[in-house]
Design a protein around this nucleic acid. Structure first.
Length: 682
RNA sequence: GGGCCUGUAGCUCAGUUGGUUAGAGCAGGGGACUCAUAAUCCCUUUGUCGGCGGUUCGAGUCCGUCCAGGCCUACCA
């Protein structure tokens, strides 16, 4: 390789608040494969990561556990690193955002912002948990939506009506940390006036070089089409994080110091290896790549480039964004047992299988990746065990005595063809189109197996006259196998390692796939990979279900068999008097007409009869849970004296009563046989 | 409503800058082999390439439009 590139790669920093699961692993496996590929190509490439350790959630976890934050994050970090190592993910440095290196770099960034005159102070009024003594981020507040009166909504937005608001507007707010009613308090916050970098961000995000096109379009349409709001980067004490040196009592918000953690981890790497930090972050010829998930897009595509720009560091060459993991077409779910922890996976299955499966599915787009468990099993067994490893296992023992032929035999151009495929495979890896790379590689195995088949080494073996031929056939097969092992090394380093043990020639360079191995001994063949058994997959899912039940049981303080979750999600409301209750006029009503509303996602239009000629038109958010035809004639319980409300599709004259979180899980109140429309519910 | 993406065989997908009769893997059916982890190899069925319209000598590929699905965003109890 003429000019090795210098490449710095990161994955998002996992939050130090929970275990690594198979959803996280999409990103770390994707990044690790890309890094291993770059290293195999002979580039100077380092892979950095760290635990993201600051913020309120960490404080709460430590408190619940009864230990200090430092103890908590140390334990989590150890677990994270153990899990990553279990999947063959190799970092050149794994740090922590709670490190002295990170603090120093934060100060440096901060000073740059100060010098550039971008910091502004403003008083912010927030809810405050008196019992815990802390300000409450929106998601730690629940209460009644000020727009639609839905109960038990988060402090920033309503699940039911989608309205967004500040936690201060929410009705009957409750702190989820202490279940107490928060008070209102004002504190100064520090903001970065990111709008002053608008032109730069326009140009950087839209250049077509750094972001996938769909991401560039998204930013253009949602953020860059209007002035950027100032970014609130401080939190008043108490807050687990770094105190801002020139603003005592104020701490940097976790999202300020988290990406800087990439650099702090680099710093640790450099201190350990004696390399020059600036050659990684200040040298424009160094390529910086960030791999992240779509959930943290704007922190990395707006704030982070802005920070680097102001502090005069090298901007990322590419921010590579991937989608989420689904299992069997659905979101990972604790109840279904598809929320599989890395640790649990390793108890039942080979990590190489997951690396291979993810690789075979990953492409360059911001698409969700589906782990189909049936396909997972057949793909790994058919491709890897049946086709790839089989090449070695069916031929190696015939040349155990003789080793490989001294000269590479005639093979009909198979080796040459596979060597030439190297460029296309490399291009696919480089572009993060691993799906394509795998397809190209498996094609090679599909060509190699018929070769063995047609040359029948098992028959040659019986004929003393044809021993040379036998050696030649196996030499070809093992070389074709080795090419595949080299191409797959970024995905399956263990297979490459075992190939090395078998053939005695370590795989260290991509170019090795271009020249055959000859005249070397062949060791006894040992299994390289076990088939996946369906029962192992099932056991893993079952154990994940059990884990979840255990967790629920721990959280469940009552003896009842019903989950305590609903009450946790929505604590009991304040006591009211009978008179207050009596204000709500609940009536039995009959659905006389139920119809779809064009263009409404959640609403059905109901005409309710209260008996006689009294009818009410009500829009109810139950479209996803009920078919209109199933409702006709049914008795429901409605709030009959609710003030009419104008909605986009007409006036709603009341509400029907139902329980459940919304969406498909809405359960209407039914009333026993005999009730008459118009009767009041007491 | 707005933005983005997707729609090709039962399933997962490939189809390069438009160019002959549209492909692969898996699954299904038939056969062969027995070296190999019940692995492998050969043969084989299936497609209005989401619909319609257009550009072109020629469209799975380009343009328009509609339909369906997904993600995001907004509105809506």
């Amino acid at each position: 390789m003429a000019n090795p590139r210098k490449i710095l790669v990161t994955s998002a920093l996992p939050y130090a608040n929970g275990p690594i699961h198979i959803g996280h692993l999409v990103e770390y496996i994707q990044t690790d494969i890309w890094v291993k590929f770059q290293k195999l190509r002979g580039n100077k490439c380092i892979y950095l990561c760290a635990d993201d350790t600051h913020g309120t959630a960490i404080m709460m976890s430590a408190q619940r556990k009864g230990c200090s934050e430092e103890e908590w994050i140390a334990a989590v970090s150890e677990e994270h690193q153990r899990d990553f190592a279990g999947f063959g993910i190799e970092f050149d440095n794994y740090g922590s955002t709670n490190s002295p290196e990170n603090y120093e770099l934060c100060k440096l960034f901060w000073q740059s912002f100060r010098n550039a005159g971008l910091v502004r102070k403003e008083a912010v009024t927030q809810l405050f948990d008196d019992e815990k003594g802390i300000f409450l981020a929106d998601r730690f507040v629940r209460g009644t939506c000020p727009k639609c009166a839905a109960d038990d909504q988060y402090g920033d937005s309503c699940d039911q009506c989608g309205a967004t608001y500040s936690a201060r507007e929410i009705i009957n707010p409750v702190s989820t940390l202490s279940d107490t009613t928060p008070s209102v308090k004002t504190a100064d916050h520090l903001f970065i006036q990111i709008e002053k970098l608008h032109d730069f961000l326009d140009q950087w995000t839209q250049s077509g070089e750094h972001l996938q096109s769909e991401i560039a379009n998204y930013l253009k349409g949602h953020f860059l089409n209007e002035p950027l709001r100032d970014w609130d980067v401080s939190r008043p004490e108490p807050y687990f994080g770094f105190e801002i040196p020139d603003a005592p009592g104020h701490f940097w918000f976790v999202w300020f110091d988290a990406p800087i953690g990439y650099m702090a981890s680099t710093k640790q790497y450099c201190d350990r290896t004696g390399e020059d930090f600036e050659s990684w972050w200040k040298d424009p010829s160094t390529e910086i790549y960030h791999f992240i998930g779509k959930d943290i897009t704007y922190f990395h595509t707006l704030f982070w480039p802005a920070m680097l720009k102001v502090a005069e560091f090298t901007l990322p060459k590419k921010i590579h964004i991937h989608g989420f993991l689904t299992v069997d077409g659905r979101k990972m779910s604790k109840r279904d047992g598809t929320f599989v922890k890395a640790e649990t996976f390793l108890k039942h299955l080979n990590p190489a299988a997951l690396r291979y499966y993810y690789a075979s599915k990953l492409n360059n787009r911001v698409e969700d990746l589906d782990l189909n468990l049936k396909e997972f099993t057949t793909k790994v067994n058919t491709d890897l065990v049946g086709k790839v490893v089989n090449l070695a296992s069916r031929t190696a023992k015939f040349v155990q005595q003789t080793g490989l032929s001294p000269e590479y035999p005639e093979d009909g151009g198979l080796f040459q063809k596979a060597a030439e495929a190297g460029d296309a495979i490399a291009a696919a890896y480089e572009a993060c189109d691993f799906n394509r790379a795998i397809r190209l590689i498996i094609e090679l195995a599909d060509q190699a197996n018929p070769y063995v088949e047609s040359h029948q080494p098992w028959n040659l073996r019986k004929d003393p006259e044809r021993q040379q031929e036998l050696q030649d056939v196996c030499t070809v097969a093992l070389n074709l196998f080795r090419q595949i092992a080299i191409y797959l090394q970024p995905v399956l380093p263990e297979i490459a390692e075992k190939t090395n043990s078998l053939l005695g020639d370590p795989i260290v360079k991509w170019e090795q796939a271009a020249s055959p191995l000859t005249g070397t001994p062949v060791k006894q063949f040992e299994h390289m990979m076990k088939r996946i058994e369906e029962k192992d997959v099932n056991n893993m899912i079952e154990e994940s279900k059990d884990e979840n039940e255990t967790v629920e049981a721990e959280e469940n303080t009552t003896q009842s068999t019903d989950s305590a979750q609903p009450l946790i999600d929505e604590p009991l409301a304040d006591e009211i008097t009978f008179e207050e209750f009596a204000k709500v006029d609940l009536r039995v009503a009959r659905v006389v007409k139920a119809e779809h509303v064009e263009e409404a996602n959640k609403l059905l239009k109901l005409t309710l009869s209260l008996g006689g000629d009294e009818t009410r038109q009500v829009f109810a958010g139950i479209k996803k849970a009920y078919n209109p035809e199933d409702l006709d004639g049914r008795l429901v319980v409605m709030v009959a004296n609710l003030a009419p409300r104008k909605m986009r599709f007409g006036i709603s004259e009341g509400m029907i009563t139902a329980a459940g979180p919304g969406g498909e899980e809405v359960f209407m109140l039914a009333i026993d046989e005999g009730a008459q429309p118009g009767q009041r519910v007491h």
